Simulated assay, not measured.
Amino acid sequence: MLEASPKKPVKRWLLIAAGLVALVVSILVAITLGSADISLVNIRDIVTNHAGLTDIPVRRSEDAIVWEDRLPRSLVGAACGTGLSLCGLLLQSLLRNPLADPYILGVSSGASTGAVAIGMLGLGGGVLGLSGGAFIGSIIAFIAVLVIAHFARGNTAAFILAGVASTQLFSALTSLMIFAFADSDEARGVMFWMLGSLEGVRWQQVYLALAVALIAVVICWAAARALDVLTFGEDMAGALGVNVTAVRISLLTLTALVTAGLVSVAGAIGFVGLVIPHIARLICGHRHALLVPFSAVFGAIFMVWVDALSRIFFSPTALPIGVGTAVVGVPVFIAILLKKKARG
C-alpha cells in the first residue's frame, strides 16, 4: 500500500500526456481530411511558415484551406469540447444530477434569443454581431436563473427548476421573433447558427475560445478537491471546511461564463457536456483530479473528430456540429445508461 500512492500521480500524468498527444495527432489528421487532400508535410510547412520558422513555397489554395479554414475550426472545436465537457462535469457534481449539462442553466436559450435579437431586429445599432448578442443573451438568462433560484430558497432543485423555466422562456422568445420578423433567408441563417456551426470561424475567435477553455481547465483543476468533497453532500462538505455556498455560486458563474463564451463563438452544441463526463467516470473513477484533465482532453478529441467526419460525409456542405454531436452522443449516452443498469 505504501508503494502504491507515489505511482498514482505518475500514472495520472502519463495518462494526461497520452491524451494530449492523441489530441495533437487528432487535430493534424483532421486537417488533412476534406474535399481537398492535403498531406501532413504540407500542413507542417504551412504552420511553420505562418509561425515565422520557415519560408517554404506552398500552394496558395492549400495555405488558405489549412490556415484560414481547417486549422481554426479544429482548434475552436477542441476548445469547445474542452470547455463544454468541463462545464457538464461541474454541473453534474455541483447539482448532484447525472443529467445536468451546460445548458441546464438556460444559457444556450438566452444566447439564441440574443443572437436572433441582433440578427433580425437590428438591436445594438450594428455594433454587436451575432456572437456579441449571444453572449449578452446568455448572461441575461443566467442572471434570471440566479434571481429565480434565490427567491426559491437557492437549493439544488431550485437551480434546476429555474434553469428549466429560463430555458422555456427564452426559447419561446426566440421562436416568437423568428415567427414574427424573419424572412426565409434570415430564418435559415439563424437556425443554422442555433444548431451549432464551426463554419467561418476566424483566428480572433480561436484566441477567444482557447482562452476560455484554458481558464476553465485551470479553475476546475484547482477546485478538484472541493468537488470531491461535494459529492458526499453539502453537510459533509461543510463539516470538512468547504464553503458550499461560495463554491457553488463561483463555479456556477464560471460555468455560465464559459458556456456563454463558447456558444457565442460556435452556437449551441449539445450532448458534449452531458456524455463526456459519464465516459470519463467509467474510465477514471470519481476523483476530480483525474476527471478534470481527462474530460477536457477527451471532449476536445471528440469534437475534433465529429467536426472532421461531418465535413467528410456531407461534403461540400458540412453538417452543423450540434447535429453531429447529437447523432453520436445519443447512442453513446444510451449505451452508458444500459451499462450502468447492467452493473446495478
Rank of each mutant, 00 (worst) to 15 (best):
V306S: 12
S295M: 10
R281S: 05
A266F: 10
I249T: 15
A239G: 15
L230V: 02
G267C: 03
E234C: 03
T245C: 05
A289H: 11
L257W: 08
R281H: 10
S310A: 15
D228M: 01
G285V: 02
S310C: 15
L262K: 02
A256G: 13
M236C: 03
F294I: 00
V272I: 12
T253L: 07
L251G: 04
G299H: 01
L252M: 13
A239P: 05
H286L: 05
L227A: 00
V272G: 00
V247C: 10
A300Q: 12
V244F: 15
G285C: 05
I276W: 07
C284N: 00
R287H: 11
A246W: 14
F298N: 01
H278L: 10
T245L: 14
V297L: 08
V263E: 09
T255P: 09
G233Y: 05
A308W: 03
G233V: 08
V304G: 15
V258E: 10
A256T: 11
I301F: 12
L240I: 15
A256R: 14
L251V: 10
T245V: 13
G233S: 09
V258L: 03
I279Y: 01
H288I: 04
I276M: 02
P277N: 07
D228G: 05
R287G: 02
A296W: 00
I301R: 11
I301N: 10
L251D: 06
G233R: 07
H278K: 02
V265F: 13
A308N: 01
G267I: 06
T231F: 00
L257K: 02
V229F: 02
L282W: 01
G233D: 12
G241L: 10
A226F: 04
R281Y: 06
D228H: 03
A256C: 11
D228T: 05
E234T: 06
V244A: 15
I301W: 14
R248D: 06
G270K: 09
V292L: 00
F232V: 14
L251R: 13
A300D: 09
I269H: 11
A246S: 08
S250K: 14
G238I: 04
L309Y: 05
A226T: 04
I301E: 15
L230Y: 11
I269G: 03
A237I: 13
T231V: 01
T259W: 06
L274T: 07
